[in-house]
Design a protein around this nucleic acid. Structure first.
Lengths: 248, 248
DNA sequence: GTTAGTACACTGGTCTGACCAGTAGCCTGC
DNA sequence: GCAGGCTACTGGTCAGACCAGTGTACTAAC
């Protein structure tokens, strides 16, 4: 017979618990309002400081937002990857997770998204991809910022075609963290125009593979493109970690 | 000329900012202590409630932990994936992700983990896997709960061999969510012993592939095993979403 | 000298009550 | 009909208090 260690349960934790439960169960939908702090205080039978600490925790988790003076009370937010992004970013900075691991993960996600996209794409999806590629082509002459936005849009279309929100969100988060880690190095890239052209050519190839419903090909192209573009920022000793993914 | 919208900066946010900065910059290392709330109050020149709200936020981010009565003050924690785990869990439950998407995602993660494990495994890793498999074999006769624990342990070893914490954490989270969704159905499974034996055989095959450094084979076996075990709970119309992954 | 027991100073958790700046909506007075 | 101000609220912050619990230093008994 073994006993579990018990931790004292704080009052604010039980408040968080109940509100969180109401949100995830759907009893409180995004856009709806919580009662005011003073009202919650009487409903929960605790002091205002307890309520406020609970609301702070929920706010840090990006579940609610409150604004002084708003008589409608704190707002319930839609689930967003913002909190996920923050915690992943923190973890990455704490260097348990380096660029190599992030890139590895991104190759996995991006490769799978392309594979699924190639297999599941409809004619409409292809039209959307054509449009996204065209924006990128225009972006080349409009400067890096514009091109980058079009690039992100292309990736988002791919992710959407794969029809898996988890894939979409994870990829978005990891992409953001990767960019934050190397943005200073990217700033100094000299030959941006040729980089953009190469990137554009990659995407055109990917699109061809997707059009041909060649999932394996699209996945490989996507992973290869990530490797070609970012591997130089990964310490040489860790690059072998990425290579098995290119062969799959 | 465009202006940025400004958001009022709360006092507790600036407290969070400073403490967080001290932690990520390394000025405060894990295991070290923050001053007591009353001391922080005078250092920051704010009231105790402000300090407490800041500490709550940091605590929700798993950066510190405080215990009443400890005269050494709040403890700075080492970076851990716990916060990431929580936010991913929340997102998975909130986003309209069904069993099909979860399983798809898990096949991707598990497949990639097995692929990497097969390519990166050392002799020591193989020893660890042998031990884990042995525990599973013993678990068969000790009942489902014991077997399940050994199974989880096996998966964790695999994930650790792949040497990517993101993969480890994501897979753990998704596995948890999947189990939550179907646990009621699993409870009623009648022929548990034969299920366990089949599962065990699967794992032995996987181990063989990993021993042979056959990444593709290990990945395929892992995905196939997930499909065989869980596809029956996925609505028939959504099963085609999973099949492209089996062919990669 | 060692040890059991106790007193104390301190911790975080919670409550109360207060004040402030700001908001939304009503409600005048034109 | 409408601009402008009034008012009742909101959240943000502070001050002060009490409590249960902890760690430590001191004391008393052996």
């Amino acid at each position: 017979m073994r006993f579990e260690p018990v931790a004292p349960v704080r009052a604010y934790e039980r408040v968080v618990e109940q509100i969180e439960q109401a949100v995830v169960s759907g009893a409180l939908k995004p856009g709806e309002r919580l009662p005011s702090e003073r009202e919650l205080m009487t409903q929960f039978g605790v002091g205002r400081s307890t309520i406020r600490e609970a609301l702070r925790v929920l706010q840090a988790a990006e579940m609610i937002r409150s604004r002084p003076g708003d008589p409608r009370g704190p707002e319930v937010l839609a689930a967003s990857p913002a909190a996920l992004h923050r915690s992943m970013h923190r973890l990455a900075r704490a260097e348990h997770v380096g660029l190599a691991e992030l890139l590895q993960f991104r190759m996995i996600l991006d490769g799978s998204a392309h594979l699924l996209a190639a297999e599941l794409r409809t004619e409409d999806d292809l039209t959307g991809l054509d449009a996204a590629l065209e924006s990128m082509r225009e972006g080349v002459s409009r400067g890096y910022a514009e091109f980058s936005r079009a690039d992100v849009a292309f990736h988002e279309v791919i992710a959407r075609i794969s029809r898996n929100p988890l894939l979409v969100v994870s990829e978005e988060v990891v992409r953001g963290v990767v960019l934050e880690l190397i943005e200073d190095k990217l700033e100094h890239a000299s030959n941006r125009t040729s980089l953009m052209r190469a990137w554009l050519a990659h995407h055109a190839e990917v699109l061809d593979a997707i059009r041909a419903s060649d999932g394996g090909g699209a996945a490989h192209l996507a992973k290869q493109a990530l490797y070609d573009n970012y591997a130089e920022y990964v310490p040489a000793g860790q690059r072998p970690l990425l290579e098995p993914l290119l062969r799959s």
